[in-house]
């Protein structure tokens, strides 16, 4: 026997609606957690990642040890998937440390709360936000849209590096936006492929005057900065990738022509008005426009022209005569 389970409160319902699959998705949330054995460095890496992502509740950091999580082993991701479901996070960073893989960080993505792909990196040469000063005066704003700079031919040719690039962009890009404020470009993630590792740096961007329209860019290291040794990775199966890469169907709503919305007037439309033929129009008949009067006026104009040709003085007299008449008229009224 089945029964319908409904959320008991409006708040719970809203929360479920927030989590529901959508055509235009929310930006991804990051879950940070670690295993039973860690080092101070790996913990600091996790908290720095948390610091970079926490704006707008887009990161959740767990501080308890997790002994059931072994992402690359069979059955070791159950707990991870459960936590992803619980927190609605589709990105995870799992820190651990062992003799075989010291300072290990597993970066991974979820699709429908199942592990989609992941990559293991070893952290070396780590400098935290605190030690680098966070860019000090030029510290980038929390939650701003970052730039990415990838240097190295390996990011094109090596599948592992390409995978890493994909992951880092997904982890750090934040929200997809349509417009950007040029003054708001204040941080950049630099990834440089050196040998079998990636040099990862987070810098603050500062614009300096250059005398032209385009300012000169200056970078100040804000931290974290680290070398990431690429270890194991697991790429998604072709089927899963196909499913996850599906694009939302283009909305069937056709754009309505000549209708726009105005913040003050609301819906504003432009109508088609056929061109007016004034000659054919039935207008009110006025006395002055009658044909005989028109002809008389024309004849008068012709005679006036003749007079002006014979002498300019007459015209001036005629005008002088006209003005008292007008005055009389106004007095009578």
């Amino acid at each position: 026997m089945l029964r319908i389970v409904k959320p008991k409160t409006k708040r719970a319902k809203r929360e479920l609606e927030k989590r529901a699959p959508k055509l235009e998705e929310n930006s991804k949330k990051l879950l940070l957690l670690h295993g039973t054995k860690t080092t101070a460095n790996i913990k600091q890496v996790l908290s720095d990642f948390y610091h970079l992502r926490k704006e707008g509740g887009k990161a959740i950091k767990y501080t308890k040890k997790n002994d059931a999580i072994r992402p690359f082993e069979g059955g070791g991701e159950t707990s991870l998937e459960f936590l992803s479901q619980k927190t609605d996070c589709s990105l995870f960073a799992f820190g651990s440390h062992s003799k075989k893989r010291p300072n290990n960080l597993v970066l991974g993505r979820m699709f429908d709360h199942k592990v989609y792909d992941m990559m293991e990196v070893g952290i070396e040469n780590f400098k935290s936000i605190e030690t680098l000063g966070g860019g000090r005066k030029a510290a980038p704003q929390a939650g701003s849209k970052p730039c990415f700079a990838f240097v190295g031919e390996k990011f094109e040719s090596d599948p592992k590096f390409r995978h890493f690039k994909d992951l880092i962009v997904d982890f750090m890009r934040g929200e997809v936006v349509e417009t950007i404020n040029l003054q708001g470009l204040d941080k950049v993630f630099i990834c440089i492929a050196v040998g079998d590792k990636v040099v990862f740096k987070h810098c603050a961007v500062r614009f300096k005057k250059s005398g032209t329209k385009v300012p000169r860019v200056e970078l100040i290291e804000a931290g974290p900065s680290m070398d990431m040794i690429l270890r194991r990775n697991r790429e998604p199966s072709a089927d899963l990738r196909k499913e996850a890469m599906r694009l939302a169907p283009k909305s069937s709503k056709k754009k309505i022509k000549n209708v726009s919305t105005d913040s003050l007037a609301g819906k504003v439309g432009r109508m088609y008005v056929p061109s007016q033929d004034v000659g054919e129009m039935a207008l009110t008949k006025m006395k002055g426009l009658k044909r005989e009067r028109r002809e008389a006026a024309a004849a008068k104009a012709v005679s006036k022209q003749d007079q002006s040709e014979s002498g300019a003085g007459d015209v001036a007299m005629g005008e002088a005569e006209g003005s008292p008449k007008k005055k009389l008229k106004s007095n009578g009224a």
Partner: peptide, 11 residues
């Protein structure tokens, strides 16, 4: 232009 995977299937 760099297409990234969705987090949940299409509704």
């Amino acid at each position: 232009s760099l297409q990234l995977p969705r987090e949940k299937p299409l509704p």
